[in-house]
C-alpha cells in the first residue's frame, strides 16, 4: 500500500480534522486500503498552516489542510473566502467557492499541487462581554481579530482591534484585557468562552475556507484508478463538509444556549449595513490586488450565476 502523511493544525474533534478523517475513510474504501493516509492533527508534524503551501509543493508532506488566509502572501485569491460581509450564509459561501474553484485550482497547479477539497468554517461572529448589536456598542471595543481584513474592517467601524496569539486570548478574556473576539461560535465554544463572555452576535462576518491540497507528484505516482478514487473521495468530502458546517452551526448555537450565552442572530439591518460599509474599502482593495481575476469572480457572484 502507498503510505501518505497528511498535516493539519487543528484538534481531532474540529470540523476540519473530522472532514479530513472522512476523506481518509473514503479513500480507504475506494482503494481497498491500497492508499493509506495518516492524519497528523494538532500540527504534530511540526508544520503550521503558514508552512503548508510550500511544504506540499516540495513534497515535504504529501497532503495538508490549510487555512486559506495564511496563503494570502502567495496569492491574494486566498483572501476571497474571508472577505468580510461578502457572503450571507452557507449557500452563498458555497456558490462563491464553486465560482472561484477554477482559479484556486490554477494557483495550486502552477505550484505542483492538486486542490482536493475545501473545508468551510462556521460563520464568524462577535463574542463579547456586553451585547454588541449596534454601531454604538462597537465604539472603542477592544476586540481580537484573526487577520488583516478583520482588523481593517473593525477599525473602520470604530472598534479598537487587537492582534493576539490564540494562546493569549483566554487569559486576556479572563482578566478583561480584551472585551470581545471575532471568531466562530464553534471556536469560542471549544475554548469555553462562556466562562468569560455572555454574548454572541451572529453578524455573518465571513465563512472562511480551509483548503486541502496534495503534492502533484505524489498524486500522479498513484495508479489512474487510485487517482480517480482520490478525486471521488474529495468530491464526497466537499459535499460532506458543506453539510457538516450547516449542522455544526445549529449544534453550536444549541451548546451556547445551554451555557447561558445570549445569541443575537440576525442583528439589526442598520448594524449590518454599517458593518458592510466598513468592509467595502477592504473589498475594493482586494479587487485592486487581484486585477481581472477578482473582477470576474465578483461579477459572476453578484450576477447570481452558477458556474
Amino acid at each position: 500500500a502507498t503510505r501518505l502523511d497528511f498535516s493539519n493544525e487543528y484538534n481531532a474533534n474540529s470540523i476540519h480534522a473530522q472532514g479530513d478523517a472522512y476523506f481518509i475513510e473514503q479513500v480507504r474504501e475506494l482503494t481497498d486500503g491500497e492508499v493509506d493516509i495518516t492524519l497528523h492533527t494538532g500540527g504534530a508534524l511540526g508544520f503550521k498552516s503558514g508552512d503548508h503551501f510550500y511544504a506540499v509543493a516540495d513534497n515535504a508532506v504529501q497532503i495538508a489542510d490549510t487555512l486559506s488566509g495564511t496563503m494570502s502572501g502567495i496569492d491574494p485569491i486566498f483572501l476571497l473566502s474571508s472577505l468580510p460581509f461578502l457572503v450571507d450564509g452557507v449557500d452563498e459561501a458555497r456558490q462563491l467557492y464553486e465560482i472561484a474553484r477554477p482559479y484556486y485550482d490554477e494557483v495550486f497547479e502552477d505550484n505542483d499541487q492538486v486542490l482536493l477539497y475545501a473545508s468551510p468554517w462556521p460563520a464568524s461572529g462577535i463574542w463579547s462581554r456586553e451585547a454588541v448589536t449596534s454601531s454604538e456598542s462597537l465604539q472603542n471595543l477592544k476586540i481580537r481579530t484573526f487577520d488583516r481584513n478583520g482588523t481593517e474592517t473593525l477599525r473602520n467601524a470604530g472598534a479598537a482591534p487587537v492582534s493576539l496569539s490564540w494562546a493569549d486570548v483566554v487569559p486576556q478574556l479572563a482578566t478583561g484585557g480584551i472585551n470581545a473576539v471575532l471568531t466562530s461560535a464553534e471556536a469560542g465554544a471549544n475554548a469555553s468562552f462562556w466562562e468569560h463572555q455572555q454574548h454572541f452576535s451572529g453578524i455573518q462576518y465571513a465563512i472562511p475556507l480551509n483548503m486541502v491540497h496534495m503534492n502533484r507528484n505524489a498524486f500522479e505516482s498513484l495508479s489512474s484508478d487510485q487517482q480517480e478514487a482520490l478525486r471521488e473521495a474529495a468530491r464526497r468530502t466537499d459535499e460532506h463538509n458543506w453539510q457538516a458546517v450547516r449542522e455544526r452551526t445549529v449544534s453550536n448555537y444549541g451548546t451556547l444556549e445551554e451555557n447561558g450565552v445570549s445569541i443575537h442572530d440576525p442583528v439589526s439591518a442598520d448594524f449590518q449595513q454599517a458593518l458592510s460599509e466598513a468592509a467595502s474599502p477592504v473589498i475594493s482593495g482586494w479587487q485592486d490586488d487581484m486585477g481581472e481575476r477578482g473582477q470576474e469572480i465578483l461579477e459572476t457572484f453578484h450576477n447570481g450565476q452558477t458556474p
Binding site: 484538534n11 481531532a12 474533534n13 492533527t41 494538532g42 490564540w166 494562546a167 483566554v170 487569559p171 479572563a174 471549544n190 475554548a191 469555553s192 466562562e195 468569560h196
Partner: peptide, 19 residues
C-alpha cells in the same frame, strides 16, 4: 499557571483553559 503546555492541552482536548 500560566502554562504553555496546559494551553496546548486545552486547545487539543477542548477543555477550558481557565479550569
Amino acid at each position: 499557571p500560566p502554562s504553555i503546555v496546559m494551553i496546548v492541552y486545552g486547545v487539543q482536548a477542548e477543555v477550558s483553559i481557565s479550569k
